[in-house]
């Protein structure tokens, strides 16, 4: 069963198309990473996913139910970390935990306290006075406290330093190991998400240009370099579906999306290297990620 099922999801803002017929499935217990550059449509997709925004067309099912119609009951089983942590500024983390505890069927208040302690976030400080990173950590602690079947994390590491980012992902890995929660995460921290994601989707200008298992993705993408003098190799490159080709002096440097070990003979002198998720992302979306600079 799919925890998330998007079917032809389309969002328009006037004439502008923010999401164009996006369809995807997130199997139960998996970790799905949705990547995309700023303005690619991730936030619109997450708002639709949480039932905050009505799609112009298509629909979003969470845990098998239409989220626009049944948002409140579905969210009892969903933990959410928004992109911009947004709790009332006067409430402390402890008050927020108490507030939320009355809304969810299960609530682990001690778990919230323990996580905040691990993150080093004071639980008696008003939310409005916490740093952006601390706010995100409070949101994550709250999201995990209801033992959700599904976690929706909208760029949870935005604004966090490297240590805090590591703590977030470790928390997630720990939680996943404990409960096997389904996770839907959008992030610019590609290195972090690469460690935990089972499946990856890439949004580019509102269109889902990639939706694939992480292992399969990494298996079919390679960087291939070979001398320009090997004209036969240049000819064979087309069959490997290059997504980015660059000439560097005497060499051709290409990222291919259908790598097959036997397609470039040894006499072509290819140098084949595996790619990180970030490299694949950059190759697919054109230019380096702004968030990573």
């Amino acid at each position: 069963m799919s925890s998330i099922s998007l079917d032809g999801l389309t969002v328009r803002y006037g004439q502008r198309l923010a999401l164009d017929q996006v369809s995807l499935q997130v199997p139960e217990g998996s970790v799905y990473a949705l990547l995309g550059r700023n303005g690619a449509g991730k936030s619109s997709l997450v708002r639709c996913l949480l039932g905050e925004q009505k799609p112009s067309a298509g629909r979003a099912l969470l845990l098998g139910r239409d989220v626009w119609r049944e948002r409140a009951s579905i969210l009892a089983e969903v933990g959410v970390v928004p992109e911009d942590p947004n709790a009332p500024p006067a409430m402390t983390a402890r008050q927020l935990s108490r507030f939320c505890s009355r809304l969810y069927p299960r609530w682990d208040a001690a778990g919230v306290e323990a996580r905040l302690k691990r993150f080093g976030v004071p639980s008696g400080t008003p939310f409005g006075k916490l740093s952006k990173g601390q706010k995100g950590q409070v949101s994550l602690a709250l999201a995990l406290a209801s033992s959700p079947r599904l976690l929706v994390l909208d760029d949870p590491t935005l604004g966090l330093d490297a240590v805090a980012r590591k703590a977030v992902f470790e928390e997630l890995i720990g939680d996943l190991a404990d409960r096997g929660t389904t996770v839907f995460i959008t992030t610019h921290d590609l290195a972090g998400v690469e460690r935990i994601a089972d499946r990856v989707g890439i949004l580019n200008q509102g269109r889902l240009v990639l939706d694939e298992e992480m292992e399969a993705l990494k298996a079919r993408f390679r960087r291939i370099s070979f001398p320009r003098s090997r004209e036969a190799a240049v000819g064979r490159l087309a069959a490997l579906a290059p997504v980015a080709v660059a000439s560097r002096g005497w060499e051709v440097d290409a990222v291919v999306s259908r790598y097959d070990e036997g397609s470039l003979p040894v006499e072509d002198g290819p140098e084949v290297t595996s790619l990180t998720l970030e490299e694949i992302f950059i190759a697919l979306t054109g230019t380096p990620e702004e968030g990573e600079r």
Partner: peptide, 20 residues
């Protein structure tokens, strides 16, 4: 004010009906 300052999402990301 919550709506303009994007804090209403805090309530909408909880199991709370809109009318509540």
């Amino acid at each position: 004010r919550d709506l303009a300052e994007r804090r209403l999402g805090f309530y909408f990301s909880r199991p709370l009906a809109g009318w509540e």
